[in-house]
Structure formats: structure tokens, C-alpha cells
Design a protein around this nucleic acid. Structure first.
Length: 433
RNA sequence: GGAGAGGUGCCAGAGCGGCCGAAUGGGAUGCCCUGCUAAGGCAUUGACCCUCCGGGGUCCGUGGGUUCAAAUCCCACCCUCUCCGCCA
């Protein structure tokens, strides 16, 4: 969430920044938050003054009783009881207002990065690198991966649906091996700078709130209500909260993590879209990279993470482009965001295979992840500050899998295994019937 | 799942309902002493909120309650540890 003091001290700037998101409901929430904050502070001051009086009377009562002056003590107690009543009432009002303010703040999105492009939808996202495409695609690559893969026996979505539900997938044989090889490749390529984590795939409500999915996007997540747990929609969720509620040393930053994990999404708003093949599923595998950093370190880390995701796509030899997300199309928590898209000639579509984002201190404030800042000489400042968080997919398996099946399809219907994956394929370099 | 014990500051650990934001020890930092090292002396050492910058308030696992007053009493929940049960 954004800093309420920013709303208090520089409402115009916040309003201007959020206006770029092009969402009237956000502006309304901002106005409500602003006036709630004003009233909240009035009540806070009043409540604290009452508390101060109760505290000081109570001290006097204690002393009078010790000195045996029971009558005077009881008179003061009667006073204090009265004050206590009004204090209790004010405290209740304060807590109620505070809850309402927090609810408003939780749905107010992050301020977009000043340099992020303007725009209102994905149509306005500029291509900032590429596209890197071959001159043309032969006809044998113009076959959708679900046809090729089903024919080769490496994709069996019919049975996945029987076992679970629609929008679940199942890879078999070399297809399953290929999926796992992609994970292994992505992990190996990022192991130089990241600690590997195997996080929980089910998390608490607090954890899912920290990264921004709750309360606003509850319908997008699978809930295990009996146990008050949620299926993670991405490893970003547990990784971000590793240091929730903790204060880190500046010298330990950046902290960089990578994790393979399954990801679960209800895809509530996308029934019927991209339902074929591997393009959109309720469960998929992904390798995520993530950093906790100082504000100063964040921009360079963002570049580095984009370059890492791009490098993996390059080494797989897939056609791709990089787009920057415009202010009106950014996710709620995002400050600045880039997508890598791979071209799938069979489906004739650009597939988003990686999204790398900088969240400034938005998630860290929700998760309460702080650090002790230091000055130029390395001496600690007074106080603490929130870290910045960044994360992105190092590799999202299903869409890359799909793009490989389409781009590496041979004229006879077989699929070649990209060089970079062969070490992980138990000697399989051609997938055929 | 059953039985028991426990959750206090960076760590360990004390804490009678008021004199407790909290003893004591350790650690860390600064200064002093010391030829160097070891030892020693002194001091500092939590976070957060509001502020008319004088100050005021909150936090002893979390949330409620009792009381003029709660780390301390009561209730619920969470977590940790030990034993038993179950189990990949």
C-alpha cells in the first residue's frame, strides 16, 4: 500500500500520479482515504489526551492509597471512571475509522513510475526491444501446439480434465520431461545470484494480502476455506513474505531468491479464453526470481532481472519482443513493469512468458519488511525504512513449452529439442511418434 | 489428534496489579586505561504514531475482558518445545 503520509502531505502529487491509471474508482477511494485520515487524526489526538489524564490520575490513586488516603483516592477513581467511559468510546471510534482507512488503502494501487509510458490499455504498451522474428515461418510451423502435442502423445488434456476439471493440463513422456527441463534450465541460469527456495504452496490470508492479491482479487485465487489457506498464484507470494515483519541490515541487501513452484489461478474473468492447449490453465509451473533491495539498488536490479529472463528466451532460440507496461495497464502493486512475449506461429499469437516488475515499497509496507538505512560513510541513519521489492518470472513453463512445440516443429510432425535443454532431457533430442 | 511446558528487548533471562519500556548477564557501539594482547573503567544501545516541537500516546505472541490502573488477573486463538498416536 502507499504511504498514508504521502496522501496527507502531498495529495496533489498522489492524485496526479494515480490519475495516470485511468480508473475513477481509484480516485474516489483516494478522496475517501484522505478525509478518513483527517478525521482519524483529530480523534487520535483527543483520545491520547484522555489517556494521558487517565494515566496520570491512576498514578495519583496509587500514591494516595499507599499513603492511606482512601477517601481522596476513591474520589479520583470516580473521576477516572468517567473519563474512562469517554476514552473507551473515542478509542472505539478511532479503531473503526482506522479499519476503514486501511480497507481503502489496501485497494489503492501503487503510484506508477514517472518514466512509465502513458496509456489506458495493453494496446498502448510500447515495444521497447525487438521484435526478433525470422523472415518467415514455414507452413509446418503454422500448426497449433495442442494439435502437434496431442498427436505426439506428450499432451493429454482430455484426461487431465477427467481427473480434475476443465483448464487443467497434463504432459506425458517427453512432454513432461521437457516441462521439467525448462525449470531446471531457468534455475541453473539464475543460481549465480539467487538463493534457491522451495516455499510452501499454500499460504495464510496475511501472506496473500501482503503482495496485493487480497482483499481486492480474492476471486482469482483458489481458497482452502476449511483451513484458512490459499493456493499461491505465484511463488512471488511466499518469497516476498520470507522476511515479513523483520528489519534487515542494509549490508545484507539486496536479498535475491529464486524458486520453482506450481502456480494456481482460478482465471475467474477469463472463462472460454485461450482454453486450448497450454495457454491458460488453473495450475502451471514457473520459476520465479525476486529481490528485496534498497530504493537505490532497485532500478539496476530491474534491468538485470529483465536481462536474465530475456537471456533464457534467447538461449532457447525463440522469437520474442519486450514491451513496457503503460500506466493504465499496470497491475495494482506495480511501479514499473516489463513483459517478455514469445511468438507462437501455430497459434499465431504473442504469448506473455515473463513479467518483471518493480513494486517500490508498496508490498514491503503491506508485509512490513524494513531495513536500517546507512549514509554515504556507511553509518546507520536513525530509524528504519521499507525495502523495495522486485520480482519476475525467470520462466513460465506452459507457454514456453507451447512456443517450443510450435517453433521447433519439423515437417514430419516431430519436434526438435532446443540445444540448451538437451542436457536435461535424458538423451532425447527429437520428440517423435 | 491426545497430554504437558512455554512465548518478555539484538540474545539469554527476572518480573509483587501501581514506583516497569521493563532487573541482571551477554553481545554491539563510542570514549578512557593499557607498549601490544588479555583484562578493566565509563557511557550509549527497541520500534511505531500524533504534535501547538513543550510534549503526549502505543507496543512484553495475537485478539477480547476485568480494574481508577494490566507484562502481571480472566477468556479465546496462534506459535514453539517434550512425550504419545498417525504418517509420505
Amino acid at each position: 500500500m502507499i504511504d498514508v503520509r504521502l496522501i496527507r502531505n502531498d495529495l496533489d502529487r498522489v492524485r496526479a500520479a494515480l490519475a495516470r491509471r485511468n480508473d475513477p474508482s481509484v480516485m474516489a477511494a483516494l478522496d475517501r482515504a484522505s478525509s478518513l485520515d483527517v478525521r482519524l487524526r483529530e480523534i487520535l489526538v483527543e483520545r491520547d489526551q484522555l489517556r494521558a489524564r487517565v494515566n496520570s490520575i491512576s498514578k495519583d490513586v496509587g500514591m494516595l492509597r499507599r499513603d492511606g488516603q482512601v477517601d481522596q483516592a476513591e474520589a479520583l477513581q470516580a473521576d477516572s471512571r468517567q473519563l474512562g467511559e469517554s476514552e473507551k468510546q473515542l478509542a472505539g471510534e478511532h479503531d473503526a475509522l482506522n479499519d476503514r482507512l486501511r480497507q481503502e488503502l489496501l485497494v489503492i494501487p501503487n503510484l506508477p513510475f514517472e518514466g512509465a509510458p502513458d496509456g489506458t490499455s495493453d494496446a498502448d504498451n510500447p515495444v521497447v526491444k525487438g521484435p526478433f522474428l525470422p523472415e518467415s515461418f514455414p507452413d509446418h510451423q503454422r500448426v497449433p501446439h495442442w494439435e502437434t502435442a496431442t498427436a505426439l502423445g506428450i499432451l493429454d488434456n482430455e484426461r487431465a480434465t477427467k481427473i480434475a476439471q476443465s483448464m487443467f493440463t497434463m504432459q506425458r513422456g517427453a512432454g513432461a520431461t521437457l516441462a521439467r527441463a525448462l525449470c531446471q534450465l531457468a534455475l541453473d541460469r539464475n543460481a549465480d545470484a539467487h538463493e534457491e527456495i522451495r516455499p510452501p504452496s499454500l499460504v495464510s490470508t496475511a501472506t496473500l494480502t501482503a503482495t496485493g492479491q487480497l482483499p481486492k482479487f480474492a476471486d482469482d485465487a483458489f481458497a482452502i476455506e476449511r483451513d484458512d489457506l490459499w493456493c499461491i498464484p505465484t511463488a512471488e507470494v511466499p518469497l516476498t513474505s520470507i522476511y515479513a515483519g523483520e528489519i534487515l541490515d542494509a549490508a545484507d541487501l539486496p536479498k535475491r531468491f529464486m524458486a520453482y513452484s506450481p502456480s494456481y489461478r482460478r482465471e475467474a474473468g477469463s472463462a472460454g479464453r485461450d482454453t486450448r492447449g497450454m495457454l491458460r490453465a488453473h495450475e502451471f509451473d514457473k520459476v520465479e526470481i525476486l529481490a528485496l533491495s534498497t530504493p537505490e539498488q532497485a532500478p539496476a536490479l530491474l534491468d538485470d532481472m529483465v536481462a536474465r529472463a530475456e537471456g533464457t528466451i534467447q538461449v532457447l532460440g525463440l522469437p520474442y519482443r519486450i514491451i513496457e507496461i503503460c500506466a493504465g495497464d499496470m497491475g495494482q502493486s506495480h511501479h514499473r513493469s516489463f513483459d517478455i512475449e514469445v511468438y507462437a506461429p501455430g497459434a499465431d499469437a504473442w504469448l506473455e512468458v515473463s513479467s518483471i516488475s518493480w513494486f517500490s515499497d508498496y508490498q514491503a509496507r503491506r508485509a512490513d519488511i524494513r531495513y536500517r538505512p546507512v549514509d554515504a560513510e556507511g553509518k546507520p541513519h536513525k530509524g528504519t525504512a521499507f525495502v523495495h521489492t522486485l520480482n519476475g518470472s525467470a520462466l513460465a513453463v506452459p507457454r514456453v513449452w507451447a512456443a517450443i512445440v510450435e517453433n521447433y516443429r519439423n515437417a514430419n510432425g516431430s519436434v526438435s529439442v532446443p540445444e540448451a535443454l538437451r542436457p536435461y532431457m535424458r538423451g532425447i533430442d527429437l520428440i517423435e511418434n
